[in-house]
Write a protein that binds this DNA or RNA. Structure first.
Lengths: 192, 192
DNA sequence: TACACAAACGGAGTCGGACTCACATTAGGG
DNA sequence: CCCTAATGTGAGTCCGACTCCGTTTGTGTA
């Protein structure tokens, strides 16, 4: 309900403090930071936290939306400067990098890609659309197969995002991205 | 500590009742059945449940171990009757079928593939070994690329296992399996 | 068959963490 | 400056995993 009324100054301040505190916690190591801890870091009481965010999960979603937005903004430029299959390749690597931001981001991406939690409905739809856009461009160019949809590819990426905390996981993640990319090119009309 | 002493008759009975009740719950829809509910279904008290299983997770692991064992037993026969890349293809489809057993099984497979929870260390290692075996056979035959390891492929499968409850997910899952399979063949010395 | 006792059982109670609610405080329009 | 609706507060509730210890029972032995 942020649109109904401009939100009082102190309320906005607290809301932002909460988001900042949550970001610190979630994007860092403390993926399952307690709400109490987040409120404390933000310098407010629990009640205030719950005035601004329906549930703990709603707060989590809000924190990660910005990251997802940024990620999903990339394809526009990528498609301007690269062939569709190359754009897709770069986007997948970008995804790996984002997952690398922190354990928290990886967990969030996992939730977005791998579950059907309604909390991430928006983020999931946005990511799926982004992938669809890249896939469509590649299909039109004949360099990517045309029988895989954005939502399907999104699911396939779950494995990447879920990785963390293991030695050398990033190399592994890149390899899986490459594997999927190759799978998408394999058998395309103009496969290279 | 089942090996130290043969376990009293009533204890064995209760243990089995608990496992049966848990299997009913987990392999059905009630993935997050409460321990109390499971104990009730088994006709024992909570204390008894905890005598047999360290934690709720330990019970979960026990329930799914059998499924994983069964799944991992398959490649032996598959490799006897099919070329390695075909054996791999079939194994991936088998994985999809197992994930289809129930929401619970899908969740378990997800945990096995996508997290690094120590609860599933055994299952994870077993699955990774199984995949390594298939990949090695394919690499020797020249029909699969040789730069992807079992653990890596296992991670990549996370996306498949995490799928559930969405209309037509199984078709989607098969497609992702095919995608990975194609990615593994793409660029192999004797790619078909 | 009876006995003894270790093993197993039961379930009320503890504990930890998400979430609520009734009251106190305060921003900011008039 | 005052009024009031918006906001903040934090002790308390709720819920579910897990613990503890008194009670019951299976079973090896005489």
């Amino acid at each position: 309900m942020p649109s109904s009324r401009p939100l009082r100054a102190d309320a906005r301040r607290n809301r932002e403090a909460l988001l900042a505190a949550a970001r610190d916690a979630f994007l860092g190591d403390d993926t399952d930071a307690h709400v109490e801890e987040i409120a404390r870091r933000a310098g407010v009481a629990i009640g205030t936290l719950y005035r601004h965010f329906e549930t703990r999960e709603a707060l989590v979603e809000e924190v990660y939306r910005k990251e997802v937005d940024e990620l999903c903004a990339a394809p526009g430029e990528l498609l301007d400067h690269h062939a569709p299959d190359e754009a897709l390749r770069r986007f997948l690597l970008l995804l790996v990098d984002h997952a690398a931001v922190g354990k928290g981001m990886a967990v969030a991406l996992e939730s977005i890609t791998a579950t059907d939690s309604p909390v991430f409905d928006n983020a999931r739809a946005q990511m799926a659309n982004t992938l669809t856009r890249l896939l469509d461009a590649g299909a039109r160019a004949g360099t990517l197969r045309d029988d895989v949809t954005g939502p399907t590819l999104l699911r396939a990426l779950g494995g990447i995002c879920a990785m963390r905390a293991t030695e050398g996981w990033q190399a592994e993640a890149r390899q899986i991205a490459a594997l999927l990319h190759d799978g998408l090119r394999f058998g395309a009309p103009r496969a290279t």
